[in-house]
């Protein structure tokens, strides 16, 4: 017989949880404060290259919906391609950052989604049809081991700078497919052999094992791989735009590169880079919440994001 009341145990657990959450928030706040403090110091030491955090935020909000800088300097109808050649006056919202940033976000998410579908189809399909792996793996291994950005200039030359669907989306799809193929294969290989053997002793066929063992069993690891692929996709998507695509956040950064020395230059570049960092963190956070819900039955799913 124990002398400890079960209610006391639960209360202690709740207290510990609250304490952990409080410490988490404290450390998070401390980390952000240190980051902003260092940023602020850099802006004092190197004002020509680093704006203050507030300066970057101010630039971003001032230019988000309409931007006098881009309108006068370089943007014109780039963000509103439907107006090109129409003879119509270009409305002010075409100069704002928001259209460019939405285009980039959309293209990256589309590319990542397409690549995930194709990669999973090839990776998981190869479990059912091993010939797929024999055909696909050598090619995927070749491109998978090459640096991720190496094909970007070729996509720009092959597909041009005008049709982002082929260049930006195409490149992101390409690499996401490769990554998800390997992640799905690895996830399947990591399923314990005992589980497969148990399924076989229960009369499982390749198709039924795929459906009831591989499909659910690989999800947690695939989800982790998807987060990695998406993180890479942000960088890849913006890089392709920097190389010449005429719309998107990368295009804005590319144009501002030539503004070194302008009063507004540091705030513009840092604001745009920071935006993509923050956006990637937010999207990743949403992803974590979704994956935790889908894989709550698995240990890895429960620990995800901790």
């Amino acid at each position: 017989m124990t002398t400890t009341d079960v209610l006391d145990v639960r209360a202690k657990a709740r207290r510990d949880k609250r304490k952990r959450q409080s410490l988490f928030i404290l450390y998070l706040t401390l980390g952000i404060a240190i980051f902003l403090g260092v940023w602020q110091v850099l802006s004092v030491w190197f004002p020509l290259y680093f704006p203050s955090p507030l300066g970057a935020v101010r630039h971003f909000t001032d230019n988000l919906m309409t931007s006098e800088w881009t309108r006068r300097w370089f943007a014109h109808a780039n963000a509103c391609p439907a107006l090109i050649g129409s003879g119509a006056d270009i409305p002010p919202y075409c100069s704002g950052y928001v259209l460019h940033l939405l285009v980039t976000t959309r293209n990256i998410l589309i590319g990542a989604a397409l690549g995930t579908i194709l990669g999973l189809a090839a990776g998981l399909g190869s479990l059912v049809f091993p010939k797929i792996a024999e055909v696909f793996t050598p090619v995927a291994s070749f491109f998978g081991t090459a640096p991720i950005f190496i094909a970007a200039p070729f996509f720009v030359i092959w597909f041009g700078v005008d049709v982002a669907l082929l260049t930006t989306v195409g490149l992101i799809t390409f690499y996401t497919t490769l990554l998800m193929y390997f992640f799905s294969r690895r996830a399947a290989e990591n399923i314990p052999v005992g589980i497969i053997e148990s399924a076989l002793t229960l009369g499982g066929t390749p198709r039924s094992i795929f459906r009831w063992v591989y499909m659910p069993g690989t999800v947690p690891e695939i989800a982790g791989g998807f987060r990695i692929a998406l993180a890479g996709a942000w960088g890849l998507g913006v890089l392709v735009e920097v190389l010449g695509i005429q719309r998107g956040g990368g295009f804005l950064i590319a144009m501002w590169r030539f503004g070194v020395g302008l009063v507004e230059w540091p705030a513009a570049v840092v604001a745009l880079i920071t935006f993509f960092g923050v956006l990637a963190v937010i999207v990743d956070g949403i992803l974590v919440v979704g994956i935790r819900f889908l894989t709550r039955w698995a240990e890895s799913g429960r620990r995800l994001g901790l």
Binding site: H76, V161, G244, A254
Partner: peptide
């Protein structure tokens, strides 16, 4: 409409 790409491109 300008299409901004550097000279080598």
């Amino acid at each position: 409409t300008p299409v901004y790409v550097d000279d080598p491109t």
